[in-house]
Simulated assay, not measured.
Amino acid sequence: MTLPDSPRWPRRIAAMLYEALLLVAILFFATFLFVILLGSATEPPARYILQGYLWLVAGGYLVWSWRHGGQTLAMQTWRIRVTNREGGALDWRQACLRYVIASVFFGVGFLWALFDREGLYLHDRLTGCRLQLEPSKRPAK
């Protein structure tokens, strides 16, 4: 049983696909800057530094978005907001922890939601967060 104002699966998947496209563009640009400034990153240790840098760039984008309005661009498009259990804004600790746990457990956290009694992702269950469906802003006819 999912929470009543929780987004349904088709909306969640569409938002994730859109988010992936946005992240690819952000990470492509970040890699371009890295290579311009530091040169090739095909050999260790430069490759490992680049990987860590990209993880931090992605985290910076997501955490900042979750802290400032609870939505990334993809979440705004699909009217999804991440909130704490009470429906308020995430604090820095929650947002950072949510990103780290989602990164560590990657796909497992999303599969968890299929079996969770409230439909929460693992990283949301562990950090006290949840996804909320935003009401439509279209004017009534």
Rank of each mutant, 00 (worst) to 15 (best):
P45S: 03
P45I: 00
A46E: 12
Y48S: 11
I49R: 03
I49K: 02
I49A: 14
I49G: 08
I49L: 12
I49T: 12
Q51F: 06
Q51N: 14
G52S: 04
G52L: 12
G52I: 10
G52M: 07
G52C: 06
Y53K: 05
L54Q: 07
L54K: 05
L54C: 01
W55D: 01
W55E: 05
W55I: 15
W55C: 09
W55F: 15
W55A: 14
L56E: 06
V57C: 06
V57H: 01
A58N: 04
G59M: 00
G59K: 02
Y61C: 03
L62G: 09
L62P: 00
V63H: 05
V63T: 08
W64R: 09
W64H: 11
S65G: 03
S65N: 04
S65D: 02
W66S: 07
W66N: 05
W66R: 05
R67I: 13
R67H: 10
R67M: 15
H68G: 02
H68Q: 15
G69Y: 05
G70Y: 02
G70D: 02
G70M: 00
Q71A: 04
Q71L: 02
Q71R: 12
T72L: 08
T72D: 05
L73W: 15
L73Q: 02
A74H: 03
A74T: 09
A74G: 13
M75N: 00
Q76Y: 12
T77K: 13
T77N: 14
W78I: 05
W78N: 07
R79Y: 02
R79S: 11
I80P: 08
R81K: 15
R81F: 05
R81L: 05
R81S: 04
V82P: 06
V82R: 03
V82H: 04
N84M: 08
R85C: 00
R85T: 14
R85A: 15
R85G: 09
G87V: 11
G87Q: 11
G88P: 01
A89C: 07
A89L: 07
L90G: 05
L90K: 08
L90C: 14
L90D: 08
W92K: 14
W92R: 15
R93K: 11
R93D: 02
R93I: 11
R93W: 08
Q94W: 04
